[in-house]
Simulated scan of single mutants.
Amino acid sequence: MAKDTLIQINQINQLNSIRKKYNELLKYGNEHPQTVQQNLEQLRKRILLDGLPPESEQEIEERKNGVNKCSLRGLVWKVLLGIKDVSADKYIELVKKGASKQYQKIRKDIGRTFMKDSQFSQIVSQDQLSRCLNAFAHDCPELGYVQGMNVICGAFLYVLPEIDAYYCFSTFTTQSCHLYLDAKITGVHTATNLLDLILEFVDPELYEYLKTRNYHPYLFTQPILSLGTATPPLDEVLHLWDFYFAFGIHLNVICTISQLLMMRDVLLQHQSPCSLFRSLPEIDSKTILNISIHIIRQLPDYLYDLLVVHPVDQIDLSSIIGSTPLTTNTL
């Protein structure tokens, strides 16, 4: 048997073994709901150690054919987001309301959602995206629709059947990152300021160089707002989302910094490094997560605590920004 074939068989066996472990965890959780916290901890540990395996060919075909069945990743996301039951009747009623007040904005944005990803267009239709986003605007008028919701909702539809995707999107948006998606994207602006503070802390040399080259943290508004989906490939972004749902969406900021550190040598040699931020290199989730874990271990508790709450609580960074550089000792 050829060497390449043996390697391929070994990889398949490893993925099947990982998939089996997740299925066993999910089964145990369903049979022992009284130990929900312990079950979640085991699931998070597994994600940290092994990651989630990519969708199988069968799962991809089922999604393309509109089969109303959750993939392994979909099932894990629902558990991590606390989605126990979904109401088809409620969703249908919301859809029956038709176009929302934000319909024109939604219609404009859905045509640009992952437009360069051919597999996305095979799995998610514009009609599905339109239904979900208009339903949410009816169901949650205080948030309604802002640009950026389209790619977040699109990613959920890429992984989950429509009704499950809607409830995951709605729960995630309203409970985990509502300040990212309010009318002023307040949480995103806070996130870019936190990114600025953390970048200065973890790599002062790179930070100082960028400051001499027209750097401003708002350059990262789009990567932060899109939760990484602005940078392909989508399948790699989903691995980052596994991490976010397991440990918190605030890690979006850390992973964005990790992408910068991966570009470090190029940035330090470039005369206009900030021009490179318009299109970040393709996502390499494994490397990004490894660097991110290293950054997290370095951060002072005070700064990390601010990072954790910023997607849902308004925080005042005025006492930190522009002050003496952060060190572990001072915090």
Rank of each mutant, 00 (worst) to 15 (best):
Tyr218Asn: 11
Tyr218Lys: 14
Tyr218Pro: 01
Tyr218Met: 14
Leu219Thr: 02
Leu219Lys: 13
Phe220Glu: 11
Phe220Ser: 05
Phe220Pro: 03
Phe220Cys: 03
Phe220Gly: 02
Phe220Asp: 02
Thr221Ala: 02
Thr221Leu: 15
Thr221Trp: 05
Thr221His: 14
Gln222Thr: 11
Gln222Val: 15
Gln222Gly: 00
Gln222His: 05
Gln222Trp: 04
Gln222Asn: 03
Gln222Cys: 07
Gln222Ser: 01
Pro223Phe: 05
Pro223Val: 08
Pro223Asp: 08
Pro223Lys: 06
Ile224Leu: 15
Ile224Ala: 00
Ile224Phe: 01
Ile224Thr: 07
Ile224Arg: 03
Ile224Glu: 01
Leu225Gln: 06
Leu225Trp: 01
Leu225His: 00
Leu225Gly: 00
Ser226Leu: 11
Ser226Trp: 02
Ser226Lys: 00
Ser226Asn: 06
Ser226Cys: 09
Leu227Tyr: 07
Leu227Arg: 01
Leu227Cys: 14
Gly228Lys: 08
Gly228Pro: 03
Gly228Ala: 08
Gly228Ile: 06
Gly228Tyr: 04
Gly228Glu: 06
Thr229Lys: 03
Thr229Pro: 06
Thr229Arg: 02
Ala230Gln: 14
Ala230Leu: 09
Ala230Asn: 12
Ala230His: 12
Ala230Arg: 05
Thr231Lys: 01
Thr231His: 02
Thr231Phe: 00
Thr231Val: 15
Thr231Gln: 11
Pro232Glu: 13
Pro232Phe: 12
Pro232Gln: 13
Pro232Met: 07
Pro233Leu: 05
Pro233Glu: 13
Pro233Met: 01
Pro233Cys: 12
Pro233Asn: 10
Leu234Cys: 09
Asp235Trp: 02
Asp235His: 08
Asp235Val: 15
Asp235Arg: 14
Asp235Gln: 13
Asp235Phe: 04
Asp235Thr: 14
Glu236Ser: 13
Glu236Asp: 08
Glu236Phe: 11
Glu236Pro: 11
Val237Asn: 14
Val237Gly: 01
Val237Arg: 02
Val237Ser: 14
Leu238Phe: 10
Leu238Gln: 03
Leu238Asp: 04
His239Glu: 11
His239Pro: 00
His239Trp: 05
His239Tyr: 10
Leu240Lys: 08
Leu240Gln: 07
Leu240Val: 06
Leu240Gly: 04
Leu240Pro: 01
Leu240Glu: 12
Trp241Asn: 04
Trp241Pro: 04
Trp241Tyr: 10
Trp241Asp: 10
Asp242Lys: 09
Asp242Gly: 09
Asp242Ser: 10
Asp242Pro: 09
Asp242Ala: 12
Asp242Cys: 12
Asp242Gln: 06
Phe243Cys: 06
Phe243Val: 04
Phe243Gln: 10
Phe243Ile: 01
Phe243Leu: 12
Tyr244Val: 04
Tyr244Leu: 06
Tyr244Trp: 05
Phe245Met: 13
Phe245Glu: 00
Phe245His: 02
Phe245Asn: 10
Ala246Val: 01
Ala246Glu: 07
Ala246Phe: 00
Ala246Lys: 07
Ala246Thr: 07
Ala246Pro: 08
Phe247Cys: 09
Phe247Glu: 11
Phe247Trp: 04
Phe247Asp: 13
Gly248Ala: 08
Gly248Leu: 08
Gly248Ile: 08
Gly248Asn: 15
Gly248Phe: 04
Ile249Val: 15
Ile249Gly: 00
Ile249Thr: 15
Ile249Phe: 13
Ile249Trp: 03
Ile249Lys: 00
